[in-house]
Design a protein around this nucleic acid. Structure first.
Length: 198
DNA sequence: CACCTGATTGCCT
DNA sequence: GGCAATCAGGTGA
């Protein structure tokens, strides 16, 4: 399996209705923040697709709530929620509006701002290899929930790094409902070694 | 209102 | 591998 964006807006047209497709297309793209004048950036290497009312594992399965409100916003909106009362997890809302499907960003490879990310994580390794770790490394918090990934404080690049990779799929992690759906996607072949480091 | 669970992480044995 | 941390949402009395 392979995925290319070819410059097309991944949230437009028919693609928007297929959250699994988008989840795979987000692999290899860059997620970045620039707080206090310091840019931190990772390459997305692991994602999970979550549907709306049709997905028992989705936060939107039981309809709109105060927490999941951002999921009902337009595609390209950032949905951040608190996990286990401790961590933050970031999702990319995908279309169409009102469907409330989103892609959880589960892991990334550090690309820019390693020093700042090490400070935020309090350690030098495993900076972004988990949804909570990734948010911590980039400084993403609930304050950014509902912001635009196109114009907001948290940005998602429209293209991939260009590095070749293969996509592996498997069951989603940490859920108890709809565990049979293989909606977790991992980019195999991206380890950061060939990516520019700063 | 009380209780339970969870799209996790990191420290402990 | 086990388990505590820590809290909002969901469930039920």
């Amino acid at each position: 399996m392979s995925a290319r964006l070819d410059g097309a807006d991944p949230w437009d047209g028919g693609l928007s209705s297929d959250v699994q497709e988008i989840a795979q297309q987000l692999l290899g793209r860059r997620l970045s923040t620039a707080f206090d004048g310091v840019v931190t950036e990772v390459v997305i290497v692991e994602t999970e697709a979550y549907g709306g009312a049709d997905d028992p594992a989705s936060h939107a399965y039981r309809g709109p709530t105060e927490r999941n409100a951002a999921m009902y916003e337009k595609p390209g909106t950032l949905y951040v929620y608190r996990s286990y009362g401790v961590h933050w997890c970031a999702n990319v809302v995908v279309g169409p509006p009102g469907r409330a499907s989103a892609v959880l960003i589960r892991g990334g490879v550090p690309l820019t701002g390693h020093e700042r990310m090490r400070e935020r994580r309090g350690r030098a390794d495993q900076l972004a290899d988990g949804p909570g770790k990734l948010c911590a490394a980039l400084g993403i918090t609930g304050a950014h929930n509902g912001t635009s990934l196109d114009h907001g404080p948290v940005r998602l690049s429209p293209t991939t790094t260009g590095d070749p990779f293969e996509i592996e799929s498997g069951p989603r992690i940490g859920i108890t409902r709809a565990v049979d759906r293989p909606w977790r996607f991992t980019a195999r072949g991206i380890d950061g070694s060939s990516l520019a480091a700063t």
